[in-house]
Every structure is written in C-alpha cells, then in structure tokens.
Design a binder for these strands. Structure first.
Lengths: 231, 231
DNA sequence: CATAATAACTGACCGTTAGTCATTTATTAG
DNA sequence: CTAATAAATGACTAACGGTCAGTTATTATG
C-alpha cells in the first residue's frame, strides 16, 4: 500500500508550504514583528497546525534560515568547483560571500540570529543540531581550499588551514554586517564608504595570508601595494 | 530657592536608581527575558514610573549599554594616555578591548543589540542620537592613534587612518563575539581554541598594517613570522 | 495653618501574541 | 457502514509592554 508514502509526501508538502509562508512573512517583518497568526493566514492554515510541524516560532525561523545556508553552501561549492588555483578560489570565495550578501540579503540577515544567544530561548536541540550540521558543511567547503593553498605553498603555514579560514571569513562577515547596518552612519560621520572598504579589507587580508610565491605567481590578484616593498 | 536644583538632583537619583535596577535585571536575563515588571520591583517603584524616566524598555536597555560604552572609552583613553608609540598603543588597544570583553562581558553582550536592527522598533531618536555620539567618541580615541601611526611612518599609508582603524576594530570585535558565543563548538567540532586564535589574528593584522620601519623599530611587538621572509 | 496648584507616582487595565488543547473534521481500515 | 486513526482547528491562557485616570506627596499662596 502506497498510502504511507503518499501521506509522507503530503506531510512534506505541508512542511514546505508552511516554510514558504514563513519565509514571506519573516522576510517582510523580521523575527520579532512577524506573528504566527500572520504566517498561518498566509499558509492558509490555522495557527495550531503550524505547531504540528514546527515546535516554535524560532524553530520555524531557523528552518527558513537553513535554506539560506544551503544556498550559500551551493554558491561556495560552485565557486570552488570552477576555481583553478586555491589562491584564486579564496579570492573568489570572498566575492561569493559578497554576492550572496547582495542577492540574498534577507537570508544573510537571518544569520544575525546567532549573534544573540540571549534570544535563543525556544530553539529545540534538534534544530540546533541541524544548524550545526549545515554550518560544518559550509566550513568544510571553505577549509578544503585553505588546505590545498597551504599544500601548494601559496598560503602561510604558521597557521592551520582552519585558523586561516576563520580569520578571513569572520572578518569578511563582520564587514558585510556593518555594511548592512551602518553604511549611512559611516558615510555621514566619517565620509567612509564601507563597500569600498570591503574590497580593500579583502585585499589586505589576502596579502596577509599569502606567501611571496603566491604574489609572484598570481600578481593580478594582489591589488594592494605590499608595505614591505615601500621603504 | 534651591528647590529646583534639589528636585533636579532627586530626579537624577531616580533615573540612576532605575538604571541600576535595570542593569541587574538585564545582566541576569538579557533584553528579551527581562521584564519591566521585574525591573520595577527591583527598583522599588511601579512600572508606570519607569516610563516617566525612560520611554521604552529598549531605551532603558540602551541607557545601560551606554554605561558600558563609557567604560570602554575610558579604558581606551587610559591605554592611549599611557602608551609610548602609536604602534605599541595599537597593540595595547587590541588587548584593551579583550580586557574589556573579559571584565565586562555583560556590557560587551549589550553591544550585540546593534547587530540586529530589526529589533530596534522602540528606540527613540533621542536615544539613537546618544548612542551615535558615544560611538563617535570612542572611535575618535582609536583613530587618533592611527593618524599618528601613519604620520610617523609606522603604518601603511595607502589606507586612511579611519580605514585602518575600522578594519582592525571590526575584525577584533567579530572574533570576541565568536569567542563569546561559539567557543565550545569550535573546540568540539574543529579542535580550535578561539582565544588562542584571537592573539594570532591580532598579530597577523598588526603585521598587515605596519610598515617595515615599524617592524625594525619595535621587533618585540611582531610575534608572527613575516611570510615575506620565508621564501 | 489652610488651601490651591503642581509634580510625582501608582497599578489596574488594554492590546497583542506565542503557545496549548479539547473538539471537530477528514481519512483509512475492517 | 462503522470504528479507529490522523489531521486540523480556533477559542483560550498566560505573559508582557505600554497607558492613563486617579491617588499621594510636595510646594506655593493668602
């Protein structure tokens, strides 16, 4: 009897429908201002039903966010697949994150959720585990490139691949967050364009982690003057 | 008649009392879980009275946060005042932020508030202006040092002092945030100690912004091997 | 001192919303 | 056709931020 399977599919469709409704509302209003009642209305279901599929508003929010992480992961995988050398791939990965930031701003903003664990009161352990899993997935993509970069002598080897990846990724992410939130202030108060600065930051960081061999081999990737040459 | 002045003082004391009560509760519970009723109880006032002094829960939260910013600003001023050279002062400033992070973790966490503007629904323009003001204050302290560093030829001059300051400060802040929130995960999943990594990051960044002159003059401040020498 | 005027404070109340659960409706099995 | 099971509902609860009519305390006035 295929009834079991059909039921399973239908349940999956419900979950998916709820997810889409939630995405629309969360994108428009954000976590705080979105209400379960509105999501239920958009999903054309009663609120009670939402709770049959997701344990809490926050779980539902994270379920949407996981889609964003999947998109980012796919984009990074693409970049890695099409990249030629590790050093070039790293440059492209930084741009990929920026591209994701621009194309999927709403998803990017959902990542902020993790910045404030005080708010994580209603996240189930199960969902937390899911997030962890997705997170590891994307990091493994990124770190692989750094491993190869070190192997080929293109990246400094006094730091581990993971360490290098963390330093670059954290820094870029931080800048994107500020671009999202504080661009206007920096422009007005200091005359600084954070979007321009992001590029400079990327160049500076690349320069800081690359070896002289890398600079020799891929001079076009190094846009910033080496201060060591200056004097 | 000094009645006006006395009244003014008393009002100020009320504000201060409310602030202290709010601090206790916010530190213990965080923005979300803290309730105005509990703050009122701790302050030994009715909830209505709180709203005579602060326009919203979020305004009150930010008022507490501003104390944290003042502490950080003072610590940075101290560091700058006692520092000898700009390059050394920069190293010390990075440590100062880390010291603040350790000694005043609860204040540091309040800074997260700005990471998620979706939540800023109840902040008054007045309070926002206050925050802006305090923010500029601390940045001016930091940036001054970078100005001097460039003037003395100790910092690369292809980026402006503000740009250099932003890149370093953002990166360090991002790392501290992760240390606060994700230390365990990184330890478990990847065997990475983010506290150790913070030092390496600081060293790497310092190295990226300093000139060869600086390295020559203050060799003890540069703990990371220059990859340029490697080959 | 008595009384009016003003300022400070109170807490019951309101609107909103996340989450629950007894009940109803739809589906499947016998 | 009926019982059993699964799915969906929406009225209800509890909690909380914010309000405001009314009370209390303080100051000014005659």
């Amino acid at each position: 009897m295929g009834i079991q399977e059909r039921k399973g599919r239908e349940k999956e469709q419900r979950r998916e429908g709820i997810l889409q409704a939630a995405e629309r509302v969360f994108f428009e209003k954000g976590l705080q201002a979105a209400t379960m009642d509105e999501i239920a209305e958009v999903a054309e279901l009663s609120k009670g039903t939402l709770y049959l599929y997701y344990k809490s508003k926050e779980d539902l929010y994270l379920a949407v966010m996981l889609r964003g992480m999947s998109i980012l992961t796919d984009m990074c995988r693409q970049t890695v697949a099409h990249g030629s050398s590790p050093i070039e791939t790293i440059v492209r990965l930084l741009d990929t994150y920026y591209e994701f930031f621009n194309k999927h701003r709403q998803y990017f903003r959902m990542f902020y959720f993790f910045n404030n664990p005080t708010l994580h009161t209603q996240v189930t352990d199960e969902m937390r585990a899911h997030c962890n899993q997705h997170n590891q997935r994307i990091w493994s993509v990124v770190i692989d490139v750094f491993v190869k970069g070190i192997e080929e002598g293109m990246l400094r080897s006094d730091l581990s691949p993971v360490e290098l990846g963390i330093i670059l990724w954290f820094s870029i992410h931080a800048m994107l967050m500020r671009i999202d939130n504080e661009s206007e202030q920096w422009k007005e108060n200091m005359g600084i364009d954070l979007v321009d600065l992001r590029e400079k930051q990327a160049a500076l960081l690349l320069d800081a982690v690359a070896t002289p061999e890398a600079r020799k081999r891929y001079p076009h990737l190094f846009k910033i003057a080496q201060p060591t040459i200056a004097s």
